[in-house]
């Protein structure tokens, strides 16, 4: 593979990256503007929390004015982008009143990052291993077991099996039910639960890839050279399998910052995922807005990096059009 890597036009990758980058920026701009304007449609009462009834009309207007909410929408939009360019996401109003949102978020990122990375490592290693084993044992019990697992995980809503894992695994393994920083044993279950979905999708994908690939000529050649099955698997098939996977890896990596909504709130992990649920249930508009902005920006740039990474490692990709005809 690496020996064939040569690009006919040296400007191709750069031009492509630039084009995709601008496209992503445009998308982020559209999404941010759209979200910001949508949030302006929400009723004003949401900005006072419990204090709403105690305030006179003049007081309410003074508060709204101090937040800049009475300005015309285009001025608000301009202010929003000016603040954003200075790294200011606004201040929370209900969850932790008057605290800048960046200050609320910063200490939460490490938790989400730790669990996200742990889950990613688990799902990559176990998922790929499982896919490879299934392909080798095609039609036997392990393959059937693996397929049943994939069907279950893909079909049943994650919230359902997460609940049962928390319920029964903590009971039988004598693990604390909630996350406790001081007890590392309580870190295991959230990470394992988070990895289950990833394991299923990596295994499904790996199995299909292997089964398709094992009939290809280069595999027959490798066999004919006298390589063992294991060598063929790991040196040839697995390396090729990484190419299409590369596209989703940046998104997955970036999304670890965002954390898992379910897992973090189930196990009371003070991370980013649980924060969105708190913000929604308390109707803290600025906080919801900031979190939505972060999530969508991450999503858009993850896809961008994925496409670029894909173009870098796979020389067969045509750089002219992202949407290949077939």
């Amino acid at each position: 593979m690496p020996t064939t890597r040569q690009r006919t036009s040296s400007g191709g990758l750069f031009a492509y990256t630039l084009r995709r980058g601008l496209q992503s920026l445009l998308t982020v701009f559209i999404v941010l503007t759209f979200v910001f304007l949508l949030m302006r449609l929400l009723p004003m009462e949401g900005y006072f929390g419990d204090a709403y009834d105690k305030l006179t009309l003049a007081q309410r207007n003074a508060i709204l004015d101090s937040m800049g909410l009475l300005d015309p929408w285009y001025i608000q939009l301009k202010n929003f982008y000016v603040d954003l360019s200075q790294g200011d996401l606004g201040t929370s109003i209900i969850f932790r009143p008057q605290v800048p949102i960046t200050e609320i978020i910063a200490p939460k990122i490490p938790y989400s990052l730790y669990f996200g990375l742990a889950a990613l490592t688990l799902s990559l290693s176990f998922g790929l291993l499982m896919g490879v084993m299934q392909a080798r044992e095609k039609g036997k019990w392990f393959d059937n077991f693996g397929s049943a697992y994939v069907v279950f995980i893909n079909a049943v809503p994650a919230a359902v099996y997460f609940l049962f894992i928390q319920l029964y695994a903590t009971h039988y393994l004598k693990i604390p039910i909630l996350f406790d920083r001081a007890r590392p044993i309580s870190w295991i279950l959230p990470a394992v639960s988070m990895s289950l979905g990833g394991i299923a999708s990596y295994a499904l994908w790996m199995r299909r890839f292997m089964v398709d690939e094992l009939n290809r000529d280069y595999i027959k050649l490798a066999r004919a050279k006298g390589l063992s099955d294991t060598q063929v698997m790991f040196k040839h098939v697995l390396r090729n399998a990484f190419v299409p996977m590369a596209q989703h890896l940046p998104t997955t990596l970036l999304m670890t910052i965002a954390g898992s909504l379910f897992i973090e709130s189930l196990y009371s992990i003070p991370g980013m995922g649980g924060l969105l649920i708190d913000a929604i249930s308390r109707q803290d508009n600025p906080l919801v807005q900031a979190l939505v902005l972060i999530y969508s920006t991450i999503g858009v740039f993850g896809l961008f990096l994925g496409d670029v990474l894909m173009a870098v490692i796979d020389p067969r990709i045509k750089l002219v059009k992202r949407e290949g005809a077939r």
């Binding site: 496209q23 998308t27 999404v31 929604i280």
Partner: peptide, 16 residues
């Protein structure tokens, strides 16, 4: 149009 729409996380739009 698709390239823009596809970039927006569906879960976020739904939640919003």
């Amino acid at each position: 149009i698709y390239n823009v729409l596809d970039n927006i996380p569906t879960t976020i739009v739904m939640t919003l």
